[in-house]
Design a protein around this nucleic acid. Structure first.
Lengths: 186, 186
DNA sequence: GATTTATGTCAGCCATATTGACATATTTCG
DNA sequence: CGAAATATGTCAATATGGCTGACATAAATC
């Protein structure tokens, strides 16, 4: 009940138009303070669960990101990973080396192109990736269960709409392709 | 059209149960890959807009967070800010000092308790805070406009539900109080 | 007057990111 | 074939933004 009241109150506050005399130019719309701050806190909590597990292993978020995308896209090239993460190969280098050295990720020479080092998770790596994804899924499932059925779809469409329109299709294709790729046993 | 098709395809993929033979234990639910990855990319884009502006000023995300919360909660104590950001005072110190030195934030001695250094944005600071919030609001408004009316409320409830239940009321109170605090002219 | 509180600061460490330059192996193209 | 482009890795230096621990100061509180 407390939640519901607070949420309603918040909605009320955010929807009413400003009557103040702040310096905000009349041309600009009222900032969406509620969504801005909720996104900040929600994202922090969202990555907080994995962070705890990772910290015990001596890993950080960088390791999580690498492990996540390699698990989701087995056989991906190093260049693909750099492109997704939008970091430099020097930054990736250290993190990837640790994951390889500790047997979470392995690199195979490309069959066609032997310059490539295709990336795969080991069983150990998959287990960790699934553990971390499980934590986040638990949070998501709880959230979606709190709201009505059909919320999964709305949430997905909201988050999709928040993406840069320019890169949107690329992201959606990445997600869809990863869903495909992992269906057959490798 | 491309978007809609891809979104529908994505929904289809995510909702169908796994038929693969991966190492995921039967007890665990299927990871919500779509929400996990969309949240990652959406959040990145969301903070990407401010990042560009900040970079030109020689600031980073840390400065943004400080400026944002001081703007939203004028007169807040340093201790309050530390508590919201969940960082140490040493980390805050550097960033805050730069904002104060460059006249984005000012500190006033507390009227009751003269040990306190209450934090306020200057007009310059408010202008920047509003500029950054404006960029994010534009993205949010675009997203909400793409989806139907009433989506603002669903998005807010979804993000609220994603918060740690333990700290949820605290976050909602913070947001609601900030909305109040800035109504009257200071 | 002693203790606690609010804040600031010094010193050093760590993780993760950056740029630029260069090395190696391999593929591709003229 | 040989040159150029590509995929990857690595060395060195630098920046940001976190962290811990120790200590200092001023003011409030007991």
């Amino acid at each position: 009940m407390a939640d519901i009241n607070l949420t309603a109150k918040l909605a009320d506050l955010a929807n009413r138009s400003s009557a103040s005399g702040t310096a905000r130019p009349a041309s600009a719309p009222e900032p969406a303070w509620d969504i801005i701050e909720l996104l900040f806190f929600a994202y922090r909590d969202f990555v907080g669960d994995p962070d705890e597990v990772l910290a015990k292993l001596g890993f950080g978020r960088a390791h999580h990101r690498v492990l996540h995308f390699v698990n989701r896209n087995p056989g991906m090239k190093v260049a693909d990973l750099l492109d997704i993460l939008k970091i430099t190969k020097q930054s990736l280098g250290r993190v990837l080396k640790q994951l390889v050295d500790q047997n979470y990720v392995l690199q195979k020479e490309g069959a066609n192109d032997r310059r490539q080092r295709l990336l795969y998770v080991t069983p150990k790596g998959e287990a960790l990736a699934l553990k971390l994804a499980g934590l986040q899924t638990t949070r998501i499932a709880r959230a979606l269960a709190e709201l009505g059925p059909g919320t999964h779809d709305v949430a997905r469409r909201f988050l999709t709409a928040m993406l840069d329109p320019a890169g949107r299709d690329r992201v959606l294709r990445l997600i869809a392709r990863a869903d495909h790729a992992r269906r057959p046993n490798t």
